[in-house]
Structures are given as structure tokens and as C-alpha cells.
Design a protein around this nucleic acid. Sequence first.
DNA 1: ACCTTTAATCGTAATATTGCAATATAATAA
DNA 2: TTATTATATTGCAATATTACGATTAAAGGT
Lengths: 110, 110
Amino acid sequence: MGLTKTEIFTLEQNQISSIAKVFGHPARVAILQHLFKIDSCICGDLVDEIGLAQPTISQHLKELKKIGLIKGNITGTSICYCIDKENWTTMKTTLTAFLDQDLEDSNNCC
Amino acid sequence: MGLTKTEIFTLEQNQISSIAKVFGHPARVAILQHLFKIDSCICGDLVDEIGLAQPTISQHLKELKKIGLIKGNITGTSICYCIDKENWTTMKTTLTAFLDQDLEDSNNCC
DNA sequence: ACCTTTAATCGTAATATTGCAATATAATAA
DNA sequence: TTATTATATTGCAATATTACGATTAAAGGT
């Protein structure tokens, strides 16, 4: 096994978990925070900023790119990464809807 | 390897990723959604509701319990699970702060 | 006491993730 | 053309996750 049974879940459930999975590693959280902090985008400074090897950072960037949260621009030999604001907003809407479930009345028996 | 280097990240980054990791599986998302939907809590109906074996559901419940998002009450032979509203709110605050980073001005060069 | 029900735990197989060294690729500089 | 610089890819070892059958534990019912 080790394989998630995605087929038995709704599209929404799979979308939420896919997004959350990407946030499920501190390095990726750190990368996103850094990209937000440095207004203009930054490339391999991430390797220095975060204490992981270059291939590891590259791998994390790939996952962030795959889900569409960041995008990269080639500038000379380096690559300039930054947050994809539009997709970030869409993602936030999906995730917030999930997080705000508790707003709908509901009691608690425990 | 396969081991996350938590020590090089901030407490906040590790907290965010820990929460997100729990949401990173559709079964756990489904369980939480169901617990919200069914006002009063529900126990092993989750096994029927979601299409996974009982030990698997039990394992997912354990992770949700570990991070404090749900709690269980023993009622006879069955156990009644429900959302821990207080912890849910705290979690939401942490996660929302991360998701709302884009609100702080910031330009985009890509 | 004995069975039934419900849920947790154990053990294990299959797969995924993390991290990095080594290497490849691509663009610029000399 | 030959370096140099920056990033991606490959290959691999260590560990984690997912899933489930078998078993155990706990509570009630008969």
C-alpha cells in the first residue's frame, strides 16, 4: 500500500488535501514566506536563506510550481521565483471554505 | 534520509506544516467534514461513510486526535468523536495568518 | 461465564517523501 | 571556445505514510 485511495473521495476533498500536502513541509512554508517577504522575487538565495542543499530546495520549488503557487522567470543564469498571486487567491478560497466550516452553527456533544 | 530537518525551521513554520500535514490526506479531510456535518458526534459510522477499513480510519483518527483537532468520548462500546472547537479556532488563526500574507502590499516581478 | 460489538493495536507490504552527492543543462563571461 | 555560475535532474539511502488482515481490549448483553 502506501498509496492513497483518491478515487473514493470527492474532488473537493482531494483538492484540499493536495494543497495542504504542499504546505505540509516546513521548507516549503519557509520558501513561501520568504517569497512574500522579499517583494520582488528571489532565486537561489533560498538555498542560503534556508539551510538545505540546492537539489533539495529545487525539489521543493518544483512541488510548489506543480501546484501553481509559484512561478519562475529566467533572468540570465539565475531563475527568479515568485508567488502566483492569482492562484494563491484561488487556493485561499478553497482552503478558507474548509476552515470556516465551524461558522455554521453546529453543537458539540463531547 | 526521509527525515524532515525540523531543527532548521522556526516554531511557526513547523506548526503550520504540522497542521497542514494532517489536512494532507483526503480521508482526514472527509472525516473532519463529516464531524462538522453531523452536529452531534459520530463514531465508527465513519468506517461506513468513508470507504476505508476500520484500522485505517482508526489510524487517521489517531492523527487528528494527536494534533488536537478532535476528541473522543466513550459511550458504551462505541466511541463518540467530535471536533475540538477551541483547538480548531486556534489552528485556524495560525493557518489564516499564513494564508493572508498576500494582503500585505507586495509587488510581483514575474 | 460467554458471546457480541466496537474500536485500538500489531505486524507487514507497498508506496511516498526527504535529502543529498554527483551529474547534467543552460546561460553568460572571459 | 572554455570557464563560470545557477539551476535542474538523476540515483539512491533512510525514513515516513498508507492500508489492511489479524489480533487484542473493553464494555454490554444474555
